[in-house]
Design a protein around this nucleic acid. Structure first.
Length: 566
RNA sequence: GCGUCUGUAGCUCAGCUGGAUAGAGCGUUAGCUUCCGAAGCUAAAGGUCAGAAGUUCGAAUCUUCUCAGGCGCUCCA
């Protein structure tokens, strides 16, 4: 509708002010009003013209209004100080939208330029169950993938598994200690001091893991292991790495963590991945080596203090960064460069969903990929997700994996349910810090937004079911005229644009907020108006069915299950 | 110190491609059940949009600076 009006305005301006310079390059805006007393749509074009024409905006507005001619669906046009032109749309135009939605005719705008998109998210180290610290990135990553595919892109969700780094060795040591009933052992060089950080993993799941892979662990010489316990931890790791079955042991361990823990956690929130890429592949295929050679060829690395460094300062950054440590180990940076090179080969667009604490690292990686000749400006997006602070009983819940003192994701899901978990993580845009009130999410009252929306659906469902057998009077939508009815109609008319904005900008919070607002007006309407009355008014049924349709559609887009009965 | 995100009602947040009187929910206060689910509804009070300057006919929105908070500035992951 706003497009039609825009065209009309352009015509009118051409007719009236053709001779003035700059008029044809003017950007015509037709937007929704914030107040229904100003009509439905307005344009500020008269105010913009005032300067070019050197005349008062009110006079220009008047002139445009006189010359614009009649339009379908526009009931009247008004002007208002200091120069707004307000368009009032006809009721029937708005009712058309109700009918359109009832006939399942929502249009999700597809992207013309369809891409092969790779999205990497979660990618937590496979060292234990996922916890609430992973929750937000996981849910946001999943919704990002969904929204991109709604846009028409082909999307591959991948979990990058760090199965070759030091953390896995530490996990192996932890599991081995448990196998030997030495789970409380602390190595002499474990840093326990400052922030209570431990090096080995102490969670309760370690015992279970050691049981599951005991047949593999028994191949390790336990006498030798015990004899190394009083040495620094690296002596033991060195010994393990020399074991002839080291790679197989490591693989069994990682497989257990992924299959028995991480995949379970993911399925508890109905999230799944299309592919799993293992860091160890980068070693096996030689990709990692090749990247280091490439960097060297481009003169982007150098040796210092026994380590290999990337010339990050060349890109305006503060300091250079290590690629290969002096002990020969790769840093995450090096493997990530290789991994991204791999992704660039197979996909048009790469998206990484990372915690906001990685923003510095994001710049570093972007620099490196750019230096290697990849078009990072158009093909690499790193979405940084701000932290979520989970609060229960007025206190923050901590989330460290290593100490074992963490709050598993599955506990949260058990506590508040899969849908509430998702919904709460999606209510804020990603750059906003999120206060996640766990107590609120389990409440069964209007304070809890997800509950409130579900409740609206349940109420409508009940009415519709009750009416199944009854004869309903023919719909005359024109009878809808109360304040709440008008508000619902306005909101319904906004839904199509809301959805498209939400999907285009990858902003699920726009939908969650909309649904909440819609439910609010519905509950108000419900309390005020009796839908089922002796002579049943069909138009009211159409109205609430339409509300329900939108709730169900919004839930579907967000992958949330509606509850018919609360 | 540098980088980055944030700052809107007591609390949690919308609004940000500049537009008309800055909006919700919670909390507070006062009301509402012969009737489709009161797990609800209605209403009131509550604001220097962190501060300052600038651009503009017009700024919560754009620019610059200042202040405050989160996060990051490891051969950590």
């Amino acid at each position: 509708m706003s497009k039609k009006i825009k065209l009309k305005i352009v015509d009118t301006l051409n007719k009236l002010y053709n001779s003035f310079e700059g008029v044809d390059s003017l950007i015509i805006e037709v937007n929704r009003t914030t107040d229904t007393s100003h009509g439905d749509l307005y344009t500020n074009v008269a105010m913009k013209l005032a300067k070019l024409l050197k005349r008062s905006p009110m006079l220009i507005a008047e002139e445009i209004t006189k010359n614009i001619g009649a339009m379908d669906s526009v009931e009247k046009i008004e002007i208002a100080t200091p120069g707004y032109i307000n368009f009032f749309l006809t009721k029937s135009n708005k009712f058309n939208e109700l009918n359109r939605i009832m006939s399942d005719d929502l249009i999700i705008l597809k992207e013309n330029n369809k891409k092969n998109v790779h999205i990497e998210f979660v990618s937590a180290n496979p060292t234990g169950p996922l916890h609430i610290g992973h929750g937000r990135g996981m849910v946001v990553g999943d919704i990002t993938a969904r929204f991109l595919s709604y846009q028409g892109h082909s999307v591959n969700r991948e979990y990058y598994v760090n199965d070759a780094g030091r953390q896995i060795d530490l996990l192996l040591v932890s599991v081995l200690l448990s196998y030997l009933n030495k789970e409380d052992h602390i190595f002499s060089d474990e840093k326990e001091s400052d922030e209570g950080l431990l090096v080995t993993y102490k969670g309760l799941y370690i015992k279970d893991v050691s049981n599951i892979i005991s047949s593999v662990l028994k191949d390790i010489d336990s006498q030798k292991v015990l004899s190394l316990l009083n040495e620094p931890i690296d002596a033991l790791i060195k010994f393990l790495k020399k074991h002839k079955n080291y790679l197989n042991i490591r693989k069994s361990l990682v497989d257990v963590i992924i299959n028995d823990y991480i995949k379970e956690d993911l399925s508890s929130v109905n999230i799944s991945f299309d592919s799993w890429y293992f860091e160890s592949e980068l070693y096996k295929t030689g990709l990692l080596k090749q990247i280091l050679i490439d960097l060297d060829n481009k003169n982007l690395s150098y040796k210092k203090d026994g380590a290999l460094w990337f010339k990050n300062t060349k890109f305006g950054e503060e300091k250079d960064r290590v690629l290969v440590k002096s002990n020969g180990d790769m840093t995450y940076f090096a493997t990530d460069i290789a991994y991204h090179a791999h992704k660039f080969k197979h996909y048009d667009l790469l998206i990484d969903i990372w915690g906001a604490d990685h923003h510095d690292y994001a710049a570093r990686l972007t620099n490196a990929m750019k230096a290697l000749g990849y078009d990072v400006d158009n093909r690499l997006q790193i979405h940084l997700i701000q932290f979520a602070n989970l609060i229960r009983g007025g206190e923050s819940i901590s989330m460290s994996t290593r100490s074992g003192n963490f709050y598993p994701l599955q506990d949260l899901v058990k506590e508040i349910g899969c849908d509430a978990t998702k919904f709460f993580y999606l209510t804020k845009k990603k750059e906003q810090h999120l206060e996640f009130d766990v107590d609120l999410a389990v409440e069964k009252n209007k304070n809890n937004p997800i509950y409130y929306i579900q409740y609206a659906h349940a109420r409508i469902k009940r009415i519709v079911d009750d009416l199944k057998q009854q004869v309903i009077e023919k719909e005359v939508l024109n009878n809808l005229n109360t304040k709440n009815e008008n508000q619902l109609i306005e909101l319904i008319n906004l839904y199509q644009d809301t959805v498209n904005k939400s999907i285009r900008e990858i902003r699920p919070d726009i939908i969650t907020n909309y649904l909440y607002k819609l439910s609010q007006v519905f509950h108000s309407y419900y309390a005020e108006t009796k839908i089922i009355s002796p002579e049943i008014k069909g138009e009211k049924i159409v109205l609430i069915k339409c509300v329900d349709k939108i709730i169900l559609n919004g839930f579907q887009l967000l992958d949330i299950e509606p509850m018919d009965v609360m």
